[in-house]
């Protein structure tokens, strides 16, 4: 089964959230359990990006590509990039992979490649 990253849709007013909010930013009415999860789309276009050379502890790689992607439903997310020469506006597609390893935990997030 393909892994997903979820957006949160308010059951009262339909506002979509990513990241999750305890209180809806649209209607400011609901409680935290009144959201439906909706998988985020995995395709979109690259809005901006960087290659980081000075990484935090835990990263045993020389450089890390990061970018903000505008997904096809108009929502945005940050993800890691595995793209040789990124360009603003290029089409990208994502898959959910391990993006950070700590001693006892693996963290999953979106990794984008050129579409």
């Amino acid at each position: 089964m393909a892994r997903e990253i979820y957006a949160y849709k308010c059951r009262l007013c339909g506002t979509m959230h990513y990241p999750f909010r305890m209180l809806c930013k649209g209607c400011k009415q609901n409680d935290f359990f009144e959201f439906d999860t909706v998988p985020l789309p995995k395709t979109g276009k690259l809005l901006t990006f960087t290659t980081v050379y000075n990484l935090p502890a835990q990263y045993e790689v020389a450089t890390l590509g990061l970018g903000i992607v505008e997904l096809e439903n108009g929502m945005r997310m940050l993800g890691q990039l595995e793209i040789e020469e990124p360009e603003i506006g290029m089409a990208v597609k994502g898959s959910v992979e391990v993006v950070r390893k700590e001693t006892y935990d693996d963290y999953y997030g979106m990794v984008f490649t050129a579409a």
Binding site: V52, L55, R100
Partner: peptide, 28 residues
């Protein structure tokens, strides 16, 4: 460790886990 310490101010689930640092934010 100093870079990681400052990076802990980023959003834990949608930014920090990706290895985002403040220089990365400023760069984008």
């Amino acid at each position: 460790e100093a870079t990681d310490f400052v990076a802990t101010l980023t959003h834990p689930l949608t930014e920090y886990i990706y290895g985002v640092t403040l220089p990365a934010h400023a760069a984008m």
